[in-house]
Every structure is written in C-alpha cells, then in structure tokens.
C-alpha cells in the first residue's frame, strides 16, 4: 500500500506573500441540479453542510462545499474520508439523477498567504479582487490555465488541475517576488 502524494510534495515559496502547495486534499465533484431536494438532504446528512448559494463556498467543520456551476459542486474534505463520503453521497442521492466522483487526484491546491496575498492574484487573474465577496468562490483563469480561488483566513486558497501544478507554482512564485509589490507599503 502506498501513500497518495500531492503533485508537488508540498513545495513552498517565500516572497512578499507565502505560497504553499497543500494536500493531498480530498475532493469530490458532485453534479446534480441544485433545486433537487435530495441534494440538500444528502449534503446535510453526509457532510452536515448547507447547499451554497451561487458562487459561494460554505464550510462545515473540515469540509468545504463550493458552487461551481448551476449543476456542479466541489466538495473539499480530508483525503482519507473521500471513498466513504463518495459512497455515502451516492447512496443518499438514491435514484435522483446525479454524478458523484472522486477528483482528489485530478487537482492541486495552493495557499497564498500574507497581507499582500491579493496582489499575487491581481497579476494572474482577470478578476477584481477588491470586489471579491467574503465566501465567494471565483472560477477564472490564472495566466494560461483554469483555476478557482476563494479567500480564507490569512489569504487565499486556489485550486487548479494537477498536471499544471508546477506551472501554477511558477506563476505564483514569479508574482510574489520580493520587490514586485503592486502598491506602496
């Protein structure tokens, strides 16, 4: 039995903000219409979590549930819990039309932290960071790849695809270089 490893072995970079690769993080894609009653029930029963509003990410203990599209949620949870939760969610959804699948290994997760963390993302994503609302999950691109991020205590979390983890780390490190702060102290 081998241990699962994250894409970059938790690499990190110290610049004017701190960049860390996290994981392995458990992630589940759940596709179902959000107005499906079984969905709300399944989330409550299996994860003790509420259905997030449009473009929001909600937390329940160690679990995060993010709104990805009108019929898609991304669930973040401890890696060890994934298999059991996929099974439980599938069971709870019963015969309703839904798709629940483990995507933990298809993604990578980064933390961008520090008072100037937003300046790192301002260089990479066509997003008005100042207008990012608390609990907002923003899907967009960073430079040339798809990503999603949201604010958390001390900075931001960013999810991207696993195959481009090294590219994303390169982008974040380049953008956090000391001396390249966007605004005066």
């Amino acid at each position: 039995m081998s241990e699962a490893v994250s894409a970059l072995g938790n690499a990190s970079f110290e610049g004017f903000a701190t960049v860390r690769e996290l994981g392995p993080m458990g992630m589940i894609t759940l596709r179902a219409r959000h107005d499906l009653p079984a969905l709300t029930k399944a989330l409550q029963k299996v994860l003790k979590a509420e259905l997030p509003e449009r473009r929001r990410i909600v937390s329940a203990g160690e679990v995060r549930v993010g709104w990805m599209s009108p019929d898609e949620l991304l669930i973040l949870l401890p890696h060890a819990d994934v298999t059991a939760r996929v099974a439980a969610l599938t069971k709870a959804l019963g015969t309703a039309h839904a798709l629940v699948t483990d995507v933990s290994d298809a993604r990578c997760l980064f933390a961008i932290e520090g008072e100037r963390a937003a300046e790192v993302l301002m260089k990479l994503a066509p997003v008005d960071l100042a207008a990012l609302e608390p609990g907002e999950l923003r899907r967009t691109r960073v430079a040339q790849v798809a990503a999603a991020f949201w604010a958390e205590e001390g900075g931001f979390r960013l999810v991207a695809f696993r195959s481009v983890a090294a590219y994303v780390m390169g982008l974040l490190a380049h953008s956090a270089q000391p001396g390249s702060e966007l605004f005066p102290a």
Partner: peptide, 10 residues
C-alpha cells in the same frame, strides 16, 4: 448562469 461579468479571455 453564474453572474460573473467575464472578460473575453475567460
């Protein structure tokens, strides 16, 4: 669908 005012590159 998601209410984002997306620029063309997205």
């Amino acid at each position: 669908y998601c209410g984002v005012k997306a620029e063309e590159t997205e």
